[in-house]
């Protein structure tokens, strides 16, 4: 069974960077797919990779991660873009979503401005 765990912005933001990353890795180790409202900082993403590497075992093989930025459309007009940047600045990392799944379940996450495609793995015999 696949479990999708949604983590709202307020919940993830209340945590320290350390606890935020710990929480994500712990959930991934429990075979949950996580949908986070908002984005991690780039520096947190490398911390997440580091922590993931420390936890890799015969059972836990790492994560797949993807960010979805609904407003990042190539065709957006210049003014729209400026506006988005102002909104981004005000809301911090609240815009967009981050999807993280354990590599044993999620083979690949395809990104697209409007949809997220999770390619799952065939369970072994």
């Amino acid at each position: 069974m696949l479990t999708l765990r949604f983590i709202p912005y307020n919940e993830i933001h209340a945590l320290s960077s350390y606890d935020r990353i710990k929480k994500i890795v712990d959930l991934a180790k429990e075979d949950q797919i996580i949908l986070i409202e908002g984005k991690l900082k780039k520096t947190e993403e490398v911390e997440l990779i580091k922590r993931t590497m420390e936890e890799i075992s015969d059972k836990f093989k790492g994560i797949e991660i993807a960010e979805v930025n609904p407003q990042e459309n190539k065709d957006v007009q210049f003014f729209q873009k400026v506006k988005d940047e102002v909104i981004n600045f005000l809301l911090g990392d609240r815009i967009g979503f981050t999807v993280i799944g354990p590599a044993t379940i999620v083979k690949e996450i395809k990104q697209d401005p409007n949809k997220i495609q999770l390619l799952t793995k065939d369970k072994k015999k």
Binding site: I49, T52, I56, G62, E64
Partner: peptide, 8 residues
């Protein structure tokens, strides 16, 4: 190389 997953 940097990766998010490694499977033996």
């Amino acid at each position: 190389g940097i990766a998010t997953k490694i499977d033996f």
